[in-house]
Write a protein that binds this DNA or RNA. Structure first.
Length: 423
RNA sequence: GGAGGGUUGGCCGAGUGGUUGAUGGCGGCAGUCUUGAAAACUGUUGACCUUAACGGGUUCGGGGGUUCGAAUCCCUCACCCUCCGCCA
């Protein structure tokens, strides 16, 4: 969430920036500032009362020690009224703080200056195109037909076992998944990211820390009995490693990578968007997460983009990089670059990576701080990116590399797959 | 799942109702000594809220209660440990 300081220092600025996200923050910001000053006044008042109560209690202690019981009893009477008043004040203060928090959580992150206004996906800016042109053979098939033809991904079997969106990978299909995961992890660790294997279920505090809760509750699978959530992305458990942490000067930056299956309810999706591997309820993804000092976070973002681009290039796939416009930015992001692969058989771009800087939006919720040169604690910046999400990489790879004699595995993956084609 | 024992500052560890935000040790930082380092000695060293500042307040796993006063008593939740049961 946004920091109160930001809102106090420059409320108009925040409202203006949020307009770029097509978010009208005017009334919420006004309410927050009102609640903030109310809360602060109540606190000052209540602090004074508490200070007096403490003084009297200390006096009573001293009197009791000296055996002056009558005087102590007289002092006790004094506190009765103070107690009642401060009790009431605390209640009001608590209510104001709660209300303030509930309003603050409604505000999305402000976009950084590079983000342009726009309504939605159609206004995103293509910042780069790369990779070879795709030339398909006659009668090229979409990946769901290829999957059936070579018996490598079984969507119907997944429906039987669980439901739609839970495919079963078989044979070379399963091996390809494992190869891609290992390939991506190896590339990431070679680039200095430390590998972690986190839990794939998280508690509510973690969901709140990265911003999935409360507003995106419906996107996560929830285990009622234990109040755990299936992770929608490794970002959640990995970033929460740093919840309530103060990093010392030597511990920042942090660069982590993790593979996890990801679980998304995707309520409301339908049609060609969800066909085959295009949108699943369970899928595999390798993620990179960074914790940076504010002054370094944009350089880190550029590094992450270059790194993800290097992965796509190694796979030899046609891609483009988009800078999302304000209207398409996620709630928590200050800036996001999307990577998309060209699916020639489907004649559409498939999103395979999203690289974002959250600045202090997550760290404020997480209480993730670091100690600066002066020994003061400051909120750190968090960033993350997919590197990469498997299903659509697999979709594009199957479709774009299909030939009469089977699907050609990119050279770089062969040590991982142990085969050079699927046929 | 059953029974019992725990949770104190960066770490270890005292503390069972009255200046205890908390003895002591380790670690960190600064200084003395030393050519330098080590050792020794001295000092210093949590976080958060509020304030222009002085100051004030909160914080001994979380929440609630008793009391003039709670790290200390009571209730409750979470987590950890031990034993039993179950088990990849």
């Amino acid at each position: 969430m946004l920091t109160l300081k930001m809102l106090r220092d420059d409320p108009e600025g925040v409202v203006g920036k949020l307009k770029i996200k097509n978010f009208d923050a005017e009334s919420i910001v006004g309410k927050i500032l009102e609640l903030d000053s109310l809360r602060r006044n109540l606190q000052t008042e209540s602090d004074e009362l508490l200070a007096r109560q403490k003084q009297i209690a200390a006096k009573i202690g001293a009197l009791m020690k000296e055996g002056r019981k009558d005087e102590a009893d007289a002092a006790k009477a004094e506190t009765a009224e103070l107690k009642a008043r401060s009790g009431e004040l605390l209640e009001r203060m608590d209510a104001a703080a709660k209300e303030l928090e509930s309003q603050l959580v409604l505000l999305p992150n402000t976009p950084c200056p590079l983000v342009k206004p726009g309504k939605g996906a159609e206004d995103n800016e293509v910042v780069k195109m790369g990779g070879p042109e795709v030339r398909l053979p006659e009668n090229a098939l979409p990946h769901w037909d290829l999957a059936r033809k070579y018996d490598i991904i079984d969507f119907d079997l997944g429906v039987k076992i669980t439901g739609a969106g839970f495919p079963v990978y078989k044979g070379k299909g399963a091996k390809l998944q494992r190869a891609l995961i290992n390939f991506f992890l190896d590339c990431n660790t070679a680039a200095g990211y430390r590998e972690v294997e986190p839990p794939v279920m998280v508690n509510a505090a973690s969901g709140f820390g990265t911003g999935q809760l409360p507003d995106k509750e419906g996107q996560m699978y929830h285990a009622n009995l234990d109040d755990f959530y299936m992770v929608p992305t490794a970002e959640v458990p990995v970033t929460n490693i740093f919840r309530d942490v103060i990093l010392s000067a030597g511990e920042i930056p942090q660069k982590l990578t993790a593979y996890t299956p990801c679980f998304r309810r995707e309520a409301g999706s339908y049609g060609k968007d969800v066909r085959g591997l295009n949108r699943l309820h369970q899928f595999d993804k390798v993620e990179i997460v960074r914790v940076e000092k504010p002054e370094n976070s944009y350089a880190a973002l550029d590094e992450m983009i270059a790194h993800v681009e290097s992965l796509v290039n190694k796979l030899g796939l046609r891609y483009r990089i988009l800078r999302l416009c304000g209207g398409d930015l996620s709630f928590t992001s200050a800036i996001t670059y999307d990577f998309e692969l060209w699916s020639a058989a489907q004649q559409r771009w498939l999103e395979i990576s999203s690289v974002s800087n959250f600045e202090t939006y997550q760290s404020n919720r997480l209480h993730l701080r670091y100690r600066d040169e002066n020994g003061r604690t400051q909120l750190a910046h968090t960033l993350n990116g997919s590197s990469l999400a498997l299903p659509r990489v697999v979709a594009a790879l199957l479709e774009d590399n299909q030939t009469e004699s089977g699907i050609i595995i990119p050279e770089i993956l062969r040590p991982y797959t142990g085969f050079d084609r699927i046929d």
